[in-house]
Simulated scan of single mutants.
Amino acid sequence: MLMLSDNPGIGGMEKHTRELATAMGAQGQQVEVAAATQHLKDLEGITSYPLNTHRSRNSPALLLAILRLIRTGNYDILHAQGTKAAFVLQRLAPFTRRQFRIATIHGFKSRYPSASAFHRLIAVSQALANDMKQPGITVIYNGVSATPQAPALLPAGTKRPVWLAVGRLVPVKGFDFLIRAFKACPGTLLIAGDGPEQQRLDDLVSSTGQSNTVKLLGFRKDVPALMAAADGVVISSEREGFSYVCGEALLLGKPIVSTNVPIANEFLPEHHIASTDTPEAFADCLNQDLSRLSTEQSDARQQAAKLLSPATMTERTLTIYREVISRGA
Score class of each variant (00 low, 15 high):
residue 2 L to R: 05
residue 2 L to H: 02
residue 4 L to A: 05
residue 4 L to F: 05
residue 4 L to H: 08
residue 7 N to V: 12
residue 8 P to Q: 10
residue 9 G to I: 04
residue 11 G to M: 08
residue 13 M to E: 15
residue 13 M to H: 12
residue 16 H to M: 13
residue 21 A to Q: 05
residue 26 A to H: 12
residue 32 E to G: 11
residue 41 K to E: 14
residue 43 L to M: 02
residue 44 E to C: 09
residue 46 I to C: 07
residue 50 P to Y: 08
residue 50 P to N: 09
residue 52 N to A: 05
residue 54 H to F: 13
residue 56 S to Y: 05
residue 60 P to K: 12
residue 72 T to C: 11
residue 73 G to E: 05
residue 79 H to T: 11
residue 83 T to H: 06
residue 95 F to E: 09
residue 96 T to G: 05
residue 98 R to W: 12
residue 102 I to D: 06
residue 103 A to I: 00
residue 105 I to L: 15
residue 109 K to M: 14
residue 114 S to D: 14
residue 119 H to Y: 02
residue 126 Q to F: 06
residue 131 D to Y: 12
residue 140 I to C: 09
residue 141 Y to M: 10
residue 144 V to C: 08
residue 146 A to K: 05
residue 147 T to R: 13
residue 148 P to N: 00
residue 149 Q to P: 07
residue 153 L to E: 15
residue 154 L to V: 13
residue 158 T to H: 09
residue 165 A to G: 08
residue 174 G to R: 02
residue 176 D to E: 15
residue 181 A to W: 07
residue 183 K to W: 08
residue 184 A to G: 03
residue 186 P to M: 06
residue 189 L to E: 11
residue 191 I to D: 01
residue 194 D to T: 15
residue 195 G to Y: 03
residue 208 T to S: 10
residue 208 T to Q: 14
residue 212 N to T: 14
residue 214 V to W: 03
residue 214 V to R: 01
residue 214 V to T: 03
residue 218 G to V: 03
residue 219 F to A: 15
residue 219 F to S: 14
residue 222 D to M: 04
residue 225 A to Y: 02
residue 225 A to T: 07
residue 233 V to R: 05
residue 236 S to E: 02
residue 239 R to T: 15
residue 242 F to V: 00
residue 244 Y to Q: 07
residue 258 S to W: 02
residue 264 A to E: 07
residue 267 F to V: 11
residue 269 P to M: 10
residue 272 H to N: 11
residue 279 P to I: 13
residue 283 A to Q: 02
residue 288 Q to C: 07
residue 289 D to I: 07
residue 293 L to C: 06
residue 293 L to N: 04
residue 303 Q to V: 10
residue 304 A to N: 03
residue 305 A to W: 06
residue 307 L to Y: 06
residue 309 S to L: 10
residue 310 P to I: 03
residue 311 A to I: 10
residue 313 M to L: 12
residue 313 M to F: 10
residue 319 T to D: 13
residue 321 Y to M: 02
residue 321 Y to H: 03
residue 322 R to V: 08
residue 328 G to H: 14
residue 329 A to E: 12
